[in-house]
Design a protein around this nucleic acid. Sequence first.
RNA 1: GGAGAGGUGGCCGAGUGGUUGAAGGCGCCAGUCUUGAAAACUGGAGUACCCUUACGGGUACCGUGAGUUCGAAUCUCACCCUCUCCGCCA
Length: 413
Amino acid sequence: MPTDKQFERLEQRRKTLQKEFDQLRARQNEASREIARLKKEGKSADKLLGEMQKVAERIKTLKAEQQEVEAELNTSQLFRPNTPHASVPKGKSSEDNRVERVWGEKPKFVFQAKDHVALGEALGILNFERAAKIAGARFAVLTGAGASLERALINFMLDLHTKEHGYTEVLPPFMVNADALTGTGQLPKFEGDLFKTTDGRYLVPTAEVPLTNLYRREILKEEDLPISLTAYTPCFRSEAGSYGKDVKGLIRQHQFNKVELVKFTTPEKSYEALEKLTADAEKVLQKLGLHYRVVTLCTADIGFAAAKTYDLEVWLPGQNAYREISSCSNCEDFQARRAGIRFRPKGGGPSTRPAGRGSLRASKPQFVHTLNGSGLAVGRTLIAILEQFQQKDGSVSVPKALQSSLGISKITL
RNA sequence: GGAGAGGUGGCCGAGUGGUUGAAGGCGCCAGUCUUGAAAACUGGAGUACCCUUACGGGUACCGUGAGUUCGAAUCUCACCCUCUCCGCCA
């Protein structure tokens, strides 16, 4: 990967090449007109033609060089991670993440708390062996109340975000092309984390990819911002390199359900929007009555595309630990640059050229800021419900918010 | 899977290898007129990069990429996408 200095040098080289290229093309365009004129007048253009042949050759080599430099510049850009925001704590590991707040309390059990695997298997709503039989490791089968609960959670989250938080529901394709994944930052660096189809497409690792890329190569109107979208999709991850990590249970699967939140804002409003988006995700946990905490990821733990990330960590009694259930990030213009998502500032924005007589010039397009967050990871929400709401007899009480849609108040044998 | 048609500016739509960034229409913006509005008229209006303090100038872009040519929206090839018909299918 090139250093800043190498990058500078490449950029300088690109400019030099373009300067010569542009000059020669100007000369060529001029000569072309001249040749056309001479021919029309019935005069010979042989001399010019001869000269231009050489110019054409030079232009060809220049173009090739230019493309080479641009390709180099381009890839070096694509592998460069986002720069963390000033408020992001510096750190060496997830130990250095900063706890922002805690909601609710750890449930106290007068009995030995079980984990969701024991609970779910005993209740007959979770099965990993049969999943392995039909798909392999890191898959699960939900049955009966387990399947209904998963479905109820999806609906609950979507309803909350659309009806109370103002998001527009989207149902995107579950497969995307390489351009989309490059736009959000999964490609080219993290190809190994993805499932690729035989025709060169990829299964979505998160709805962030199709949602954010909805406006790829578009110039939006400032009046239309902010845009808030939510979508349910399954998410597919190869989990390469996570061998031996979270091998048991629903925590880490090749396929899981998630309701995602995505926002497009102006640069001025994006940090405000991050707080709001995070609060929207938290609201799901609050309504369900699940104890959790919010942490700010430190520089060591933050993702490739994010400038700042809040993780929501739900309490899992079965693991005696807080585990990530949502990750809410402001990517600033990182993804917008890659995906070419811009907006045209209304009125007083900086203009390309001065206003002509009697008419206002449109202001120059700027990159939007993009945000995304889980609202929430459905499978992990199900884990939290099983573990936090387990009863001594092995049954699980259903959160009030889900009782009417699920039609039961308790999951029993 | 088979057969065919097509991809041009915000939209519709013309386009002969040579002032075509691209006719015309619609829409849009500003102005004139009007008490106001409409109509009419006049003017403006794409994106990116490079040079310039600025004024301004240059280059590229007609689905994408390559080729032919002094010169390509226009010719050739490959790919992508859209549409129609047939077959198959939830």
